[in-house]
Amino acid sequence: MIINAKEAFNQDTIEALVQRAQQGEQAAFEQLYQQCYRRVYGLCLRLLADQAHAEDATQEVFVQLWHNIAQFQGQSKFTTWLHSVTSNVAISYLRKQKNWLQKVVSLEDSGMEQAEIAQCESLNGLDKLVLRLPERARLVFVLHAVEGYRHEEVAGMLNMAVGSSKSQFHRARKLLQEWYDNE
């Protein structure tokens, strides 16, 4: 068995910071933020496909985290819990943003514009394609393929049927392949 020393060290650091933050130490929470903000922002951006919204949602995640960190009991890895909190915050952020619009406008939500994607220098090859996906296909692809949730879990999180989650996943793959092949 190969142990990734850097990852193991980071994990230990994170767990120690969590314990200190649980005791109300704000400096430790700031260090925890420094360790984890890219994970949180990355997931928010992948789910929301909008830089400003992803930044807002990232702040919301950390504020919620500060208030609820005592609820983390350590049964799972902190990063697993953090991804779950982030996914839920980002999805509810999306719902809040869309709430009145969806009642009034029945337009299909498209992904990020290619010109905007080109301006995001820190995006990797897959993210550049994922951010172009239409909303539902993007959410399912990120939660299932990137975050590793089962279709049953994705369906519950997004309030859709399991079959819809699967069909949106196939739609996402088809679009991604089309764009990749044409690059």
Binding site: Y37, G42, L45, Q59, L126, A145, V146
Partner: peptide, 25 residues
């Protein structure tokens, strides 16, 4: 896909978000 959680593969926000968080908490 397996590299999507690697630090060097994750995008950076355009600004420092900590100050807003610190103020809120």
């Amino acid at each position: 896909l397996p590299r999507q959680q690697d630090q060097d593969q994750l995008p950076e926000p355009r600004k420092d978000l900590w100050q807003g968080i610190e103020k809120a908490i």
